[in-house]
Amino acid sequence: MTAAFLVWYLLYVVLSGFARDFMGIKVLGNINVALIFGVLQFVSTFGIAWAYARHAEKKLDPIADEIRHEIEGRPE
């Protein structure tokens, strides 16, 4: 997951440097691919953060809590 978002981010940076014509294509009025791609990075960041929070709460926390209680020997 970490590798994935880093690749996605680096793709964005590389395209910004090397694919200027593509990034300059206007999509909605003055708003071009570059801006949309940039805002998508924001969206994906929020999305990944939210997805991780849910995953951690549902899957990771119960296991961690159980192991911790077992080792520390008392419920909290």
């Binding site: 910004s16 960041t45 990944i48």
Partner: peptide, 21 residues
């Protein structure tokens, strides 16, 4: 314009590294 926006994206995406790892 756009070059400034690029800067801010790096500053934000960085937090996923902090969050996940």
């Amino acid at each position: 314009g756009y070059d400034g926006f690029l800067y801010s994206i790096g500053f934000l995406v960085a937090w996923l590294v902090a969050l996940l790892l």
